[in-house]
Amino acid sequence: MNTHQTAPFKAADYKSDITPIWCPGCGDFHVLMSITKALVALGKAPEDIAVVSGIGCSSRIPAYTNCYGFHGVHGRSLALAGGLKVARPDLTVLVMSGDGDGFSIGGNHFLHACRRNIDMTYVVMDNRVYGMTKGQPSPTTEPDWDSALSPGGTGLSPFHPLVIALASGANFVARTFSGNIKDTTNTLLEAIHHPGFSFVEILSPCVTFRPDEKEWKNTVHTASVEPTDDPARAARRIMTDDGMNTGILYRGHRKPYGTHVEDQAGDLSILEKQFEI
């Protein structure tokens, strides 16, 4: 790890001049800041980085960077990013999502992206609400959270993204809090460096539709234990904590999905022989 190496690129090199649409106080501002800092530390040219997203507040991030970006359709960012990384293994690929985009409409892709273990970093900004559509419960919302769409709450158990990721084969699992920029920056950088599929859940408050989440800065706490390479132990810790435990929880050793695509015209005669009579 060369996190302290002096990089030729500055934070400004990774930022675009587009003003974010987020509400004042949104946790995603801090996430954007942490990503920029992590990329400075990574030291790779902006044109060699791709930031891919789906739909939602958090998914607006690609255009706020000065990297190559793709703001695709709702829930499919992992699929699009996976195709990109297989076709272009030279690029560093970051995938940006939220709890609705990533765990509800994109839930199936999440499972299979963990299984497939393509070398990329998946960042989910979890605010436990659909913000862009103005406040509906997401898969991580508490069962009794009242809203116009689900009066009195959904009554459904929240989704455990970190445990699901472990059970599905993700190679790196961490949780951070958006307000802790230093910790988030370091975690993102480790996630990018770790081979295979890295999953970072960032607790990122929605101050507009979940004003109660302003309290998160007081309730998050750093994991008191070292990361493990045993998914069962990691899962047990996550299932038994209060959901506000931050830190790197799991580092696996699975071999990343391997493939390579070359840009060549190719000699097709090798394919034609099978057809010849």
């Binding site: 791709a50 891919v52 190559y68 793709f70 695709g72 359709v73 829930g75 499919r76 699929a79 699009l80 990013a81 996976g82 195709g83 990109l84 990384k85 297989v86 076709a87 272009r88 690029l91 199936n108 892709h109 299979h112 695509v261 840009d263």
Partner: peptide
């Protein structure tokens, strides 16, 4: 849903897909 998004990603990366 995934297969078509994968080829969009690969093609964005410059490979005919």
């Amino acid at each position: 849903l995934s297969s078509i998004n994968m080829i969009i990603g690969a093609s964005f990366g410059g490979r005919a897909s």
